[in-house]
Design a protein around this nucleic acid. Structure first.
Length: 752
DNA sequence: AAATCCGCGTTTTTT
DNA sequence: ACGCGGATTT
């Protein structure tokens, strides 16, 4: 980590005379500075070479922890401050919003602003282009809706039924996955679909056609369309394509190993005019083949773009030697791979620990205990992260952390925007912007309840289809309403009136529209209506959060309006809710952890079937490829760790409510050298726990006493053992049976 | 049309 | 174990 001050070579990075300061395109644009003295001094030679590379293609092969993001941001800053480019001539593309934000922050730190720079994900970049140029696509307007997977499946289900197929046999999610897959690869293999069964394939294809037609009618695009339509736009309107490729004189793509065919072609378009394309990535960290990423894109880069400069970043500044060696040894088991030598100047550090646990709860508890131990010895929660292969594993870990009073945050997982109340409100907003959005209409026409049920809706749909109009238009037509009975008729009229009012607020700020809606709904009644017994507090809080989010958005983007807000909501999932400088342990899937680093990393569930995931081995593609991608995933997880790495596995684990025996992962055998088995590698239990400040435990607890526990509720103490930090109680809980608890974590209090 | 009950699939990963 | 959607009842 000290490499920054290793060399203090005087500034002399071959600066040329800065060009005439370019005219700024807007007030508050990035200030055009002179060259920053010594900007590149802190970089090692290859890093520096990557930053100084000027025109033409550049491939940066960057191992984990090799300062890749640093290089990209420095390169941007370098381009700007030497006057080689204006902010609005630079396009940097990332895969996740997290990465985009990180990059923007870092540039901002150096320049004090990022106005005019385009740093975004493929998806938001494309959405932005389409907002501008959608009219050039037949059938679409700039008010298009963006459908997420849920919306897509809802529409598919309706279509499958309408076409007379059984949605059980042809499940919307499966058909949708198939369509998505097709779109991601479409440009590679042409439109030919290689369906297995002739009959099945035909159905799939019929549904697909109906889906595309319906999407057009709804003025809606799904995630894949965002990219695909831009490709279409560029293909059909070379003029538009040229505008962009001339405008962005420098294009950069991060995590290039994760690009799919469509993204590959888009990139090509963006660079078509000048060839100033810098991509960076690491084939060993390619973990998205399952959704169409094609590792050949990065492997063939030099072939695709002749005379590309190649820079390899192989010095690792992140992990202790032992961790790096272990990760390297694991990844070396992949055959389809070019060998690579990562090295570090750092010391070896502590050995990697393997935690063998009973079941998933023991595992979670063990991790929690480790964490408390380290915090007791001066560690900070914010320095620790727990990774797992699949989201369901989150549960056990979460509850153990709660019990142990470990503060945590979860990245991704259950999404904010998939919550009922949020989806409904958002659907209203969508309908206001894009009245052709029938999926949104169906979602909210009876929210809150207006007596409009399935049958009336079916009648309305039928009429609408007959006339070729949207549901909103149909609902306004007295002719359409003739076929509908009293209660529902009145409801539809109410709904129409509401939409009409909302449409007049079309240009208002998102928060204003939300307020109007909530007022209109009678918030309390609506909440009560949604109550499923768990109370309305959470939903209420979610609504407030959405409102706050809308307000914040409006403040930052005063001119973006509803359209902009909806785009953000559709594309910025709350995977991005991660707070980085906060005293909380961070939980996430192995896929989400890419690009991050933590001093202490725990990887849970390092087991066969789970870490090489069974489905990755069994399914579709060739099993070796599946296994190797799993290995890369593990590699990505391991290389996030700076100081300490903990790998845990449980003897049994609950799947679908059924406890199953497990075997430890073959990947563990691939780690050379000695692993510390079990227990706490460098602490005795007492030491670990003693360091953690105990809460007062003996507060008059006695056998036979009735006590209350945060999580398990009321119970009776059957037995008390141990003392001090080892004091335990066996408690028979009314609803949860008998548990043994460590008093210092349990927080038992006498029942009142 | 709304409320309740039952059966089924779910859990690989994400924009 | 759990939640969703569909079928059943009220």
């Amino acid at each position: 980590m000290d490499w920054m001050d290793v060399k203090a070579v005087a500034a002399g990075s071959g600066e040329q005379a800065p060009r005439e300061p370019a005219p700024r395109d807007a007030a508050g644009a990035v200030p055009v500075l002179g060259p920053i003295e010594g900007l590149l001094d802190s970089l090692n030679p290859p890093q520096r070479a990557a930053c100084e590379h000027e025109e033409g293609p550049l491939l940066i092969l960057a191992g984990p922890g090799s300062g890749k993001t640093r290089v990209i941001t420095h390169r941007i800053v370098h381009l700007l401050t030497t006057g080689r480019a204006r902010p609005d001539e630079i396009l940097a593309i990332t895969f996740t919003n997290k990465a985009a934000r990180e990059m923007r922050d870092r540039v901002e730190k150096r320049l004090g602003g990022t106005k005019g720079l385009w740093i975004s994900t493929f998806h938001s970049l494309c959405a932005r282009i389409l907002r501008r140029d959608a009219e050039a696509l037949t059938g679409y307007t700039r008010d298009f809706s963006i459908y997420d997977t849920g919306d897509r499946n809802l529409l598919l289900k309706r279509l499958i039924k309408e076409l007379g197929f059984d949605p059980k046999r042809f499940r919307p999610a499966v058909v949708g996955g198939w369509i998505s897959n097709l779109k991601n690869r479409v440009a590679a293999d042409g439109l030919r679909l290689d369906s297995d069964g002739g009959m099945e394939g035909e159905v799939y294809d019929k549904v697909r056609r109906a889906y595309e037609a319906a999407m057009r009618e709804n003025n809606a695009l799904d995630f894949d369309d965002l990219l695909l339509k831009v490709l279409e736009l560029f293909d059909e309107h070379p003029g538009i394509r040229d505008n962009y490729s001339r405008r962005f004189r420098f294009v950069m793509v991060d995590e290039y190993q994760d690009t799919n065919r469509v993204q590959y072609l888009l990139t090509q378009h963006f660079a078509s005019h000048h060839g100033n394309l810098a991509v960076c990535g690491d084939p060993d960290q390619s973990i998205y083949a399952w959704r169409g990423a094609d590792i050949r894109n990065i492997l063939d880069f030099e072939k695709d773009y002749g005379a590309a400069e190649l820079v390899r970043l192989e010095q690792n500044y992140r992990s202790k030697g032992t961790i790096l060696a272990a990760a390297s040894a694991v990844i070396a088991h992949n055959n389809a791979r070019k060998a690579k030598d990562l090295w570090t100047e750092d010391e070896d550090g502590e050995r990697i620990a393997v935690l063998e646990c009973g079941d998933e709860n023991d595992e979670a508890r063990e991790i929690a205990m480790q964490i408390q131990g380290f915090v007791g010895r001066g560690g900070s929660y914010g320095d620790m992260a727990i990774f797992y292969r699949a989201n369901f594993m989150q549960r056990a870990i979460e509850s153990a952390l709660r019990l142990a009073r470990v503060p945590y945050q979860i990245v991704g997982g259950l999404e904010f925007y998939s919550k009922r109340e949020i989806r409904d409100l958002v659907a209203y907003l969508r309908l206001v912007v894009n009245p052709a959005d029938d999926v949104a209409f169906e979602r909210v026409v009876n929210v809150p309840a207006r007596g409009v049920g399935a049958t009336s809706l079916a009648r309305l749909s039928e009429w609408a289809r007959g006339c070729g109009v949207s549901l909103v238009v149909a609902a306004r037509s007295s002719e359409a309403l003739e076929a509908i009975r009293g209660r529902a008729k009145k409801g539809l009229a109410e709904f129409s009136a509401l939409i009409e009012q909302l449409v007049s607020l079309r240009e208002a700020s998102p928060a204003v529209v939300l307020d109007f809606l909530l007022e209109e709904f009678n918030r309390e009644r609506w909440l009560r209506e949604m109550d499923d017994g768990s109370g309305t507090d959470d939903r209420e809080a979610n609504i407030d959060e959405l409102r706050a989010h809308a307000e914040e958005y409006d403040r930052l983007h005063p001119d973006a309006g509803l359209r902009g807000f909806l785009e953000e909501v559709a594309l910025v999932s709350d995977t991005d809710n991660m707070e980085s400088d906060v005293a909380k342990v961070t939980l996430m899937t192995l896929h989400s952890c890419k690009g991050l680093e933590y001093p202490y990393v725990f990887i849970a569930g390092v087991e066969e079937e789970l870490l090489p995931h069974a489905r990755a081995l069994a399914e579709t593609m060739d099993p070796d490829a599946g296994l190797e991608e799993e290995r890369r995933l593990f590699y990505v997880g391991m290389t996030r760790a700076r100081e300490r790495l903990f790998l845990s596995h449980a003897g049994t684990r609950l799947f679908f409510g059924e406890s199953r025996w497990t075997r430890k992962s073959r990947f563990l055998e691939e780690i050379p050298g000695e692993l510390v088995e079990g227990g706490r590698p460098d602490l005795e239990e007492d030491e670990a726990l003693g360091a953690y400040e105990p809460r007062e435990v003996d507060a008059g607890l006695a056998v036979g006493q009735v006590v209350v526990h945060d999580h398990f509720g009321t119970g009776t103490i059957l037995q008390l053992t141990g003392s001090g930090v080892n004091a335990r109680a066996v408690v028979d809980f009314v609803h949860h049976g008998t548990k043994q608890l460590l008093l210092q974590y349990a927080g038992l209090s006498p029942a009142s």
